[in-house]
Design a protein around this nucleic acid. Sequence first.
DNA 1: CTGACCTGTGCTCAAATGAGCATGTAGTAT
DNA 2: ATACTACATGCTCATTTGAGCACAGGTCAG
Lengths: 325, 325
Amino acid sequence: MPPEEPARLRPAQLVRAATVARLYFLESKSKSEIADELGINRFKVARILEQARESGLVRIEISAPDNIDYELSEQLRRAYDLRHVVAVETGEATEVHLRTALARTATALVSELVTENDVLGVGYGRTLTIMAETMDALACCPVVQLTGALLGVNAEENSVELVRQISARNGGPAFPMYIPQVLPDAATAAMLRRQPEVAEAHRRFPTVTKAVVAVGSWNPPSSQLYDALTSKERTALLRRGVTAEVCATLLDADGNTVAQDFTDRCISINSGQLKAIEDVIAVAGGPTKLAALRSVILSGHVNSLVTDATMARSLVALRATHPSS
Amino acid sequence: MPPEEPARLRPAQLVRAATVARLYFLESKSKSEIADELGINRFKVARILEQARESGLVRIEISAPDNIDYELSEQLRRAYDLRHVVAVETGEATEVHLRTALARTATALVSELVTENDVLGVGYGRTLTIMAETMDALACCPVVQLTGALLGVNAEENSVELVRQISARNGGPAFPMYIPQVLPDAATAAMLRRQPEVAEAHRRFPTVTKAVVAVGSWNPPSSQLYDALTSKERTALLRRGVTAEVCATLLDADGNTVAQDFTDRCISINSGQLKAIEDVIAVAGGPTKLAALRSVILSGHVNSLVTDATMARSLVALRATHPSS
DNA sequence: CTGACCTGTGCTCAAATGAGCATGTAGTAT
DNA sequence: ATACTACATGCTCATTTGAGCACAGGTCAG
């Protein structure tokens, strides 16, 4: 990897250079101090140190605990002007490993960002479920469910359970909604929104300061919401350009909101309310979600991101190709 | 080894810290510059960098090509106020491996220190023989044999051959002496010193600026000179406290010159001439030579040293015990 | 409520540092 | 010899940097 290894410095110089380097880097002495100590002048010390770096005698490494690729993270953050990006190097992971890795990192990020003065909003998704199960050291703050539960999903893997888990772990008040996410029509949805518990959660939406959400992909399909719909519904929505979903808000390939009529019959925080949240962290990865995640980022519904390195690289590459805002 | 690994910094801070660290250490930007770039002030950058170092996110290593232990080398150098010390970490090497490792390092040190304005003096010893065989990139300078040849030693392993080898490799003029090192009496030695070739070499002694020599141990015995003597001679000399020899100069345990009468009947540079040489590099290692090497160092006949790490540690420890000059 | 006590921030001022220049010393070609 | 290049060394001066202080906000016990 390094273009030139310990390079051609001879022993006597090496010993001196190593001594100088040790005093400077490891013992934090000033160059002038080292110069006095060795009876040479400070410029000489500076030049020895330069040589030591160039020759590879001194190696400075920035290590990567948790397999986070910092440089890539920062690159992606800048590419889309996001607040926080964490790109996890997962290697050739299975989908389960990928989810676990993202969940662990998301846990760390969320518990870092959330203070007890925050109100945490929570979406739905398998990765978020894993996250909830491993969540610890989270500040004691209210936890608000942002969407209704999806039918046809394992009872222990839905947004209600998710909110319960998290609030149990951080000791904060929970605002769950025991209600399906998708309803037959807007009128039914409107009616159910008036149920006390549901209304209570909805009243909290404007107070939410941090949210963690997943991203659903429609094309190719990788979404619990998509899976919960009938074939007929899917086809109709796909025809209208739906590419991604975030908390029941449907988006086209460029991040524009579409199919408001569908969203109206969902129990969920809406697009405007979601955008109003100070920090929205998307947790998503894997090859199937590229177009969807790009769409969600462009839509402005999220400003932070936990994803895998491959996804991050693809997103950066896409930005280089389409540098439009 | 590090007391605390990547420590408890959270992802968002880690990404920022890693970004700052990369810009500072890897891209050599100034802290102020980084601060402007990231929209924070320079003190913040400094504190982030401090954290990054403390947390182990940034690791600075001083690597050790050729297995040289720099810190130990410098420690030993200071302990005895020497000019150059190179301590080679040889592990559990056999004697042959040890010699080879020391010879390689000695080659590097000698070819680093010797310029074409120097005159190189060469002693005798098995390690030096190996060194001569691998000597390369040595400046083209005169090579002077400092001692006569030892009888009873393999014909290809004596000081004559050594000088021939080196001068053949660096292209410089050679001043060898085809003559035994030890003679029956001082008168014979004096007579032989008048032989043209021998006298020529002796005339060069005061011009020698750099010399490389081995160290012989008498107790325990590990010396080609010792081996070349009769049992009777050895016993007599040992009784007079001989502990070490360097170029036929015999020394007691504290580095005092002894047995001048024996030295008088040797063909060799003498103690005074040897001490007058600007740089004398001793190449010696292995557990049997500890007392001898200490003696030679204390005697002031050498000012530089190529040895193994175990020896170096022992010498440092001895110095700590007997800090007298 | 109040004052002690943290913690994170940004400041002043003096010390540390780097860029670039001037000098000295070769070695080399003319 | 002379001029040129190459290179190491030590300088001046402007910039960068760190130590230590001051201030703001928050927490806690009395």
